[in-house]
Design a protein around this nucleic acid. Structure first.
Lengths: 203, 203
DNA sequence: ATCATTAGATAGTAATCAATTACTATCTTA
DNA sequence: TAAGATAGTAATTGATTACTATCTAATGAT
């Protein structure tokens, strides 16, 4: 797994550092992840980390970038294969849950940044990510409404909040269980409840 | 507000400390709340805090105790006035949201503790709190099912998860807005979606 | 009034953190 | 092959953390 003892380029080390954070965040609170722990995990000295990132904060911005990129990709491919908005919502839901199951630290990193004083650059980035996500869901719901696939009187803003909350409820349950492996199974049981909640026509 | 420069009893100082944590947690990540900040907030020196609590962890256990006590009271009075399980769920929902609006740091403290290595005593306490809450909701849903007030084929475990997730979605929205004041209004829009999701008979 | 109790102040400790320094080893390329 | 660029080390910095030892003085019971 870790044969490389040679010098690596800054780009490669940056990747390693980001992945180390994602991994370490599965066992530690994000704020408790030290540059020392990161360095140790990839086999460097603590000071060497700062050869590749100017500050600890820059590392976290890179981690959020990674999240936005990879979750965004997963979402995009999920939506591409859908032939109607409601099916898109279902695929989005499953893609999101699968992403969290594959990267359990992702929601932890997001939520952890959300509950901080406003002028944090990392938090601003996370807020933007969530905002775009919510708008995407809201747009899907609006489309579904115009196509009469859901309750014509649907409050799509509230429905988007519920969509995110449904996923968060799943995350909380996996935190309670201390194990994210049951997540996809639990998701299958939650989705029909959500769909009925928005008045989706049973297919 | 409190010009008292006199000495206070340990019991009073413990109360002050717990309330200081609850207040400070509205602006800071819980782990970032130092004993120095607590002391400063109640007008003591940092060392004096340890006259009233043996350790920082003991402070947090006291905070969780406060949460369990006060949220439990709010829940109990909400359920007492309900005349059927579904109405109980609605009152529970509103009581919970009102509690969070009044104490915005509460969900933050809970969620923050949930994402830590397992052998943390504070986390164990929080886990117990959430477990009892979930069971309470599940029991309400089961009652509603036997009374035919909801979908007779309802998956009440999943419905309990969705119940918690719905509230969490609201919390997340208030974090996005950076302001918990819109919470009760948003809650009113979410509850009907949830009730339809569990197949509650419209009253 | 007296005096034991104890809340609080003062002034520390050791540990840990992100970040920086001076320097070395390795790679690239002209 | 020499020279510049860059990845890495070792050691250290100053700030901050939870926690503690020692002293002072307010409180309350007698």
């Amino acid at each position: 797994m870790m044969p490389a003892k040679t010098r690596l380029s800054t780009e490669e080390r940056q990747q390693e550092i980001v992945h180390a954070v994602l991994l370490l965040a599965t066992a530690n609170s994000p704020d408790a992840i030290t540059t020392q722990a990161i360095a140790q995990h990839i086999g460097l000295t603590q000071g060497a980390v700062f050869r590749h990132f100017p500050s600890r904060e820059a590392i976290w911005l890179a981690v959020i970038d990674w999240l936005e990129q990879n979750l965004g990709d997963a979402i995009a491919t999920a939506l591409d294969t859908a032939c109607n908005p409601v099916e898109g919502l279902q695929r989005l839901f499953n893609a999101h849950v699968a992403f969290i199951a594959a990267h359990p630290s992702a929601p932890r990193l997001v939520f952890n940044e959300m509950q901080k004083p406003a002028d944090n650059p990392v938090k601003q980035r996370v807020r933007g990510l969530l905002d775009r996500y919510r708008q995407r869901v809201t747009a899907l719901l609006a489309q579904a409404k115009t196509l009469a696939l859901v309750d014509p009187a649907l409050d799509e803003t509230a429905a988007a909040t519920l969509f995110i909350g449904t996923i968060q409820g799943l995350v909380m349950q996996s935190l309670l269980a201390g194990d994210p492996r049951g997540l996809p199974a639990a998701a299958e049981r939650l989705l029909p409840l959500y769909l009925r909640g928005i008045g989706a026509r049973p297919s």
